[in-house]
Design a protein around this nucleic acid. Sequence first.
DNA 1: TATTGTTATACTCTATAACTATA
DNA 2: TATAGTTATAGAGTATAACAATA
Lengths: 154, 154
Amino acid sequence: MTVTTDDRPDLAAMLLWLTRALIDAEEPVLAANDLTMWAYSVLTALATGPTRTQAALARAIRADKTRIIPVLDDLQERGLIERQPDPADRRVRLLAITPAGRRAFARTRAGIRAGEERVLALLPAADRRAFLRTLRALSDVDDVAAIAQPRSTG
Amino acid sequence: MTVTTDDRPDLAAMLLWLTRALIDAEEPVLAANDLTMWAYSVLTALATGPTRTQAALARAIRADKTRIIPVLDDLQERGLIERQPDPADRRVRLLAITPAGRRAFARTRAGIRAGEERVLALLPAADRRAFLRTLRALSDVDDVAAIAQPRSTG
DNA sequence: TATTGTTATACTCTATAACTATA
DNA sequence: TATAGTTATAGAGTATAACAATA
């Protein structure tokens, strides 16, 4: 035989179902902290990364630049982030998370991580470590989509 | 310290990015075979599972029952599936994949698996095996969302 | 000429409600 | 009274185009 047909669902299908289930499970946690998934995504990027401008933020969280504007408006109104004009480039608005924003982020992430722990607890410790390590490696890959294309090394 | 804050992105975030990249990569394969993601999903269920009715199919692929009707119409018109009234229950229409549908499915899945192989090839063989095994275990879990909820064991 | 941020709009996707025909 | 399948519609989510300000 020329092709090995593993008797398993497609990789993307398995990933999609698992991801959807986790995101569904996180919804109540986000709601309890008055955050949408996008708002949490923004706080995460500002709390953990060097993001400064809105364009950089949009790239960091893989969102359209127009997508996040209402989100930023809301977070700013609630005092969770700050937006200040950049004196060096007056087109740009510099973003920063506030102490209140950092607290909201920490609280929310703790809830989300707790839910993830309950799922990961289904796995033997060694499997769990290996899974997280490999998943992290794959999600660190620059352009998975390009690698999946034929002749991507042209 | 009471809580271990792993220095990593949230599980769901890593999964979501990886999944999106894979699905993006599969789009050209699906297009080359004149199938949407939902159509491929339907063919997969009918080719690999015991699905018989539309309601069962909708449950199997986690879609709303109204969601798949235009998809079934199209697949039937193209001769890739058959829909026949069930003599035992005249409300029901029994679904079946045709030989042509089976060929289209096999061809498409081969293309999708090839793309997945290129991504999985980034991993050491042992990591790859462990990742697939664990992912399969997690995606086989009945209700991940319920497990992620606090007090789910009531 | 290109980029940042913004608004408005159009488009896609999905769920909801309402219906029929059967059970 | 409940279920399978269908249709039409409304809602949410997203991207696109066009704009003003600045580089």
